[in-house]
Design a protein around this nucleic acid. Structure first.
Lengths: 228, 228
DNA sequence: TGTACATCAGTGAACGCGCGTTCACTGATGTAC
DNA sequence: TGTACATCAGTGAACGCGCGTTCACTGATGTAC
């Protein structure tokens, strides 16, 4: 009562704690058996509770899954925001505007992906069949894209306009009011698809028997993206 | 009996027919509900048979899944072989050696992926949890890579050696006796990751709300890969 | 051509399992006077 | 400070479902003489 701001009762704190423990175990379950195998009953059993008990905390299995996906997007968006801020102030002034921000984002993306591969794959991998994300999640996805656009806009422009860039000039409502020219839109998309190409194959284990170092391939792609 | 070569009894023909119908329905099930939801019982019901009946045709659920994955790899490998052959004879002599073979492979890959998105995702998407491919499948995967290497070797060489290429010079046992220089290995890998980057995001529906044409983005990436 | 036998497809019952979800209920924790 | 009440966490039984897989069995199809 004497505290300012949001007051939290003990019950609320307990509730939040249980919810987050459920999510934690849910992630572990996804890592082991995939998103389709996510099961409220199994989580309850792990926590020493009865199955129906968890319905006090999540309306349904799908509800839990939605929250996990939302958290994942939110986490990446926050990481991107934080990276973009620190990447465009201190570092840029030192190294010049040679793409410090996009490079920082690329490394942030890789770090985020490797920290929890299944979280990355839940977001950008094969979609969970029958699942459709609510609108607020696609909004977070747009946030992420916007941060990437901002970063790419700081890069020195390059060569003549590509055919795809002219196509984008007429199909840019996804960039939702962002002032970047079509060439920057193209560059941001390329940024995304190329890094995702390396990351997703790496996380799916497709380089596993090859002995090569995916980090170096990732770095090579990044270099190419930043080259003038 | 009068036929030469492999004789097929009516029973063998019937058996093959049932097996292929099972696989067909399995693919449809994967498309609808994902690979984890693949169920022998459900397929049997669809075919108007009892559940255990299918155990005459497949030793287990995992056995069926393995065959599906093997068929998918085999199909892509065959497509690549066929494409590489026609791509390096008639067409190349006309248009010069300006990367006709790699371009043909790229289009073949995209066509193959779009023809059955879930087949592509089963092979190159998020791995099925708990599933480990047998050796003969990884051998087919190597075949596919080899075809790609051959194609990339026909491209005119480009610029100075990249740091990643020098790394590959020491980590090339995956290219299994292929005579291509490290720069070609690098190029083939880049070929793979970039096209996969566009394709996988497209198939996963991540460009869905964006209105842009993924085919043009794919073409732009291909152009860049073939540029001198 | 016909009969005797072997092969094989498919059935139905059964086992044990786990799932999501609803519902009536107990018991503990917090709140108001 | 103590009592009466409301809130809420968690239980256990139940419903209906589907799964993979084994097993003893029937009936049809092929094969050998």
């Amino acid at each position: 009562m004497t505290e300012a701001g949001t007051q939290t009762t003990p019950r609320e704190r307990y509730r939040a704690q249980v919810r987050s423990e459920v999510k934690e175990r849910a992630w572990k379950q996804i890592a082991t058996a995939g998103a389709t195998a996510l099961s409220l009953n199994a989580i309850a059993k792990q926590m020493g509770m009865s199955g129906p008990a968890l319905y006090r905390y999540f309306a349904s299995r799908d509800d839990l899954l939605t929250e996990l996906i939302r958290d994942a997007y939110r986490s990446l968006a926050d990481t991107f925001h934080a990276t973009a801020e620190t990447g465009t102030t201190a570092e840029t002034t030192a190294s010049g505007a040679t793409g410090a921000a996009p490079a920082a984002l690329a490394h942030a993306l890789r770090g985020w992906a490797l920290a929890d591969p299944h979280r990355y794959l839940l977001v950008y991998g094969t979609p969970v069949p029958g699942y459709h994300a609510p609108d607020d999640i696609t909004a977070i996805s747009a946030e992420i894209l916007a941060t990437l656009l901002d970063a790419c806009a700081t890069l020195p422009p390059r060569g003549p306009a590509t055919p795809f860039a002219t196509h984008l000039a007429d199909h840019r409502q996804w960039a939702d009011g962002h002032p970047a020219p079509p060439a920057v839109l193209h560059r941001a998309l390329t940024f995304w698809t190329r890094l995702h190409g390396v990351l997703s194959l790496e996380l799916a284990g497709h380089f596993a028997g090859m002995d090569l170092d995916p980090a170096l391939l990732f770095a090579a792609e990044l270099d190419d993206l930043l080259a003038p």
